[in-house]
Design a protein around this nucleic acid. Sequence first.
DNA 1: CGATAAGCGAGACGGTACGTCCCGTCTTCCT
DNA 2: AGGAAGACGGGACGTACCGTCTCGCTTATCG
Lengths: 204, 204, 204, 204
Amino acid sequence: MAGVNKPDPARRSERSRQAILQAARELVSEVGYAKVSIEAIAARAGVGKQTIYRWWRSKGAVVFDSFLALSEGGDASDGDGGSVVLPDTGDIEADLKTVMRATVAEFADPGFEAPIRALNLEIVNDPELAAQYRDKLAAPVDEAKKARLRSAQRAGQIAADADLDLALELLYAPLYQRWLLRSGPLTPQYADALVDLALKALRP
Amino acid sequence: MAGVNKPDPARRSERSRQAILQAARELVSEVGYAKVSIEAIAARAGVGKQTIYRWWRSKGAVVFDSFLALSEGGDASDGDGGSVVLPDTGDIEADLKTVMRATVAEFADPGFEAPIRALNLEIVNDPELAAQYRDKLAAPVDEAKKARLRSAQRAGQIAADADLDLALELLYAPLYQRWLLRSGPLTPQYADALVDLALKALRP
Amino acid sequence: MAGVNKPDPARRSERSRQAILQAARELVSEVGYAKVSIEAIAARAGVGKQTIYRWWRSKGAVVFDSFLALSEGGDASDGDGGSVVLPDTGDIEADLKTVMRATVAEFADPGFEAPIRALNLEIVNDPELAAQYRDKLAAPVDEAKKARLRSAQRAGQIAADADLDLALELLYAPLYQRWLLRSGPLTPQYADALVDLALKALRP
Amino acid sequence: MAGVNKPDPARRSERSRQAILQAARELVSEVGYAKVSIEAIAARAGVGKQTIYRWWRSKGAVVFDSFLALSEGGDASDGDGGSVVLPDTGDIEADLKTVMRATVAEFADPGFEAPIRALNLEIVNDPELAAQYRDKLAAPVDEAKKARLRSAQRAGQIAADADLDLALELLYAPLYQRWLLRSGPLTPQYADALVDLALKALRP
DNA sequence: CGATAAGCGAGACGGTACGTCCCGTCTTCCT
DNA sequence: AGGAAGACGGGACGTACCGTCTCGCTTATCG
């Protein structure tokens, strides 16, 4: 549990940890990731700077953990949780369009967009954070998506021998790229077109 | 010429400009983008800090321009130039695999990878730089790629009504994403698989 | 002029220098030397910390200079100034007692005592400051005292071949030691006894 | 035994006490008094910080005790001891010169000088330590010196009504001052001159 | 053609934040 | 209960850069 950045010998103050993560979250949404400083996080959390440096490697690690904690806190109560489930109406095309339109909508919401962009930025030049991101945040979602694709395979809507990782990239990478580089409009129509094209490629 | 960021009253010292761009390039490759400071650029270029602030908005703008100047210096002699040409053997599949394998190879070379990653990072949270990037660096290359695809359309290898921008994204975005997020291995086989899949989607 | 701690290339801001010295003086008398921090001086002076570090080696150096400036500012208007003059009634015993009783009184005044004690502390483990102290603060006073003793030599009240430096130490060192180590009461009677004893030693 | 700074309920660990004092001594001579920290002492002694704070008021108190323990350990075996005895050849002048030349030599030895300077520094702004210093370290030595002077009084070499405390100051304060402030050379000749002058003042 | 104003190097300046060192207090767990 | 261990909130350190601001000194244009 929690994004491990340094060894955690249990002597750690949970109260401080929570205060730091909350302060980080608040500050990122108030002033933007770039303008958040460790000093400010410590001050807001009512914590010595050393307490942050003791447990995290960098500002990026703190902010990352603060998001992580949020996503972990948000799921069901059944133990480890985080079991994402996607709609499965039997119609893979319709389901994918639903999901991808939702993603497009998320990217359009500045309240979502800004922190995620910051997170991605941090991930780009910190391989260790990137690994954590994949394992803790991306993996569960990707797994759910692949589960839906597998279901489509069983239904004969997608080639049985398709590489699902690649399929996922085919669907989502264009969207991700447009968003990150702002290289084109992100519309529901775009999402639909993407699904159509990708499904054509994946057809049996 | 060059991504102008501030008004340029011709009184500008070309010698200083070149020194600054070169210093920026050197420093980025020596210590990495994040650790480059405007002070360091000024010092290395033998230039007053003000001279940098006078002509560029930010560190990102300087570094960006330094890359831009490099790419502009490297192309053909015909004026503004930059006319990229891709191979056209008549076999779109073979040609795309050639080009994408080359891209994979570039991404694998740390000497190329590091500065490009820095550039992408800077672009991600500076829309203005992003626009410049698209116009000055990405556009010519994309245009060449689309030209090749158009040629394939004429040859009936690709659907005549295919959206070429989307086609380009389908081909390159997965590769870009894997590279940027380090979310998977970048191999020639991967490039090939991507081409196969994308072409299947684009088939008439 | 001014206690030189670093080279002074004239580009220096006199306004900042004065603000720093004044802030140092105020803080020392408000919270005591030990509790003064460079950070606090900078804040009070409305100055960046770097501006202090640029021109002074240490807190001790700043505080020292702040005292120095005071003593320099306090003397006559004739140029370099600082020409201390002691009473010369022709009676060396009476004159010395007057001067040493005054010194005793100074040491008894907490407003004087505290900063001087701090200054001495700083001097004790900083040979460079000690040298400055001797040259800029002690020397003029000592010179005046020796002038008075020389006058007494001419009047035949003191041996013509007496070592005046040693004579000064004989008179003042006991007083200094009692004050610094608090090893005994500092009274006018003590001053008188000291003068009597020293003069006996110096008699022709 | 030892300069007690806090109540001592006998539950105290002698092993820890010794380790702390030794660590303090070592560190002072290795890095200098100013750079010694309580944390460093605790770490070197293999002791919790609290154990130091429990038994001493301050770094100064620890260091002081560490010196004290050293001087107590060094003297004769008769219990509390510390009975210093000075040479008494019958010639007060010769004896004083011997003793004071020895003091000069001590001050010249950096191995002695540094810790004593540190000790004096600490004493200067801690009246409580100063009192302890006088009682435990200075008093025995001063008593021995006064004993020698008293013997000289009996021999008629020194005025019978001389104030011996003042006499001691007359002899030693100039030396102490020169050493502490580095205000002049400390040579055997200087010691001799001092004795000559002081004896002249003390003559019957 | 000489004044005059801009660009320029240099770098001081008021600031913010960094990451580190210690402070003195505290809590935990062991002996 | 004392002690080893060390986390904690906090204050200050000395450093790196930020972006702005003077300084003199070219230099290149225009009255």
